[in-house]
Nucleic acid binder design. Sequence first.
DNA 1: CACCGTCAAGTCGCA
DNA 2: TGCGACTTGACGGTG
Length: 407
Amino acid sequence: MLFNRLDRLGNYMEEYKPNIGYASMNIDVEPQKYKTCRKENINNDNLYHLIQHNLKVLENTIDYNIKNNNKMFRVSSSLIPFGSSELNTLNWEDTFKDVFSHLKNKIEANEIRISVHPGQYTVLNSPNKEVVENAILDLKYHAKLIQLLSPQNNSKIILHVGGVYGNKEDAMNRFVDVYLNRLSDEIKAHLVIENDDRLFTVADVLWISSKTKVPVVFDNLHHEINPSLENEPIQIIINKVLETWHGEKPKFHYSQQAQGKRIGAHSDTIDLGKFIKDYHEIYYSANVDIMLEVKDKNRSFMKVNQYFNPSQTVLEQEWARYKYYVMSKSQKAYNDLRFMFRNNGKVDVRSFYKIIDDLSDLDINEKAEANTFSHVWGYFKRFATEKEKETYLRLLENQSIDAMYRH
DNA sequence: CACCGTCAAGTCGCA
DNA sequence: TGCGACTTGACGGTG
């Protein structure tokens, strides 16, 4: 009997393997940062070069995703500076038509699911008419990005409900009203709403969904901080959220609290052990895709994706990348991992990342850090200029570890 | 060259 | 009533 049940659970595991995604930026591609400008510097020439640069950042991110078998990511709203403002008079859609078409082909050929996430300033339910108009323009901009990059039903615009203004019921009714009467079918085809960490709970967004049929994105950390439906088991709540997707594959958010920071602040990295525990409690029986919201972006994607799709080759690459980080934290962890990878032995994903994740709790170890810089310097001294060499030796002598990271 | 305050966007919550 | 926090790169001014 027990065996049968475990066996069935194992089958669910096979069947419900989530795509794992990360938000907006990739910290390991170059050029990495999206550029923008101030209002006073907006002109067509400037915008042209900024967008050209940003599309290159996006293409590099897509290439990274293809190479690393990543099937989901969030496109940054910063792609087009002032993309929803009338101050941007460049016809960027036509100007970069060929680039968009090229990127769209890459995304679709590799079956990558995309999403966009307008920020905290896009408020559809404001009592201020102008704020609402700007929010609608911003949704049009985001829908245009989807249309240009991947105009499929599973591409989503994730939005928060907005403000409360002293009366939550009125505020929710205003959202419903704007949704039903002001949004185009094209926006509605992609728009989904998420519970937030202060104002609108899962129960609130489910209510809005019941009036509008808008699907709901469940965010675990926001639900933990701003709970609702507390008498219901979590699986019942999840089932209610799943029903709002009407058979489409849902997208959920997952994040972890940063220790010692403001409530709701996202952690630097995903602790894989905690992820696995939460995944089995919350997401396990649901056929969903999971977007990670975390500071180290694609690196946590690699970590979580290895749990679902382990590969010895990838783990070895991961070990190579984390090597100096481990060395700078703990000589013991470094030796343990070397032992783990000895003789091309098979490495267990969870054990590997447990050693890496546990390092973040350690205090700064300046001796180990200085030792690491000596190792790294062993590689760099061949390429370094005289000036860089002087800087390095001066900083090492003074044990100025922080300054060394900067250089 | 390093560092700091301000700018964009809208809302909430605390003096 | 007004200002800090949230977010993040740009950019001007100061030392």
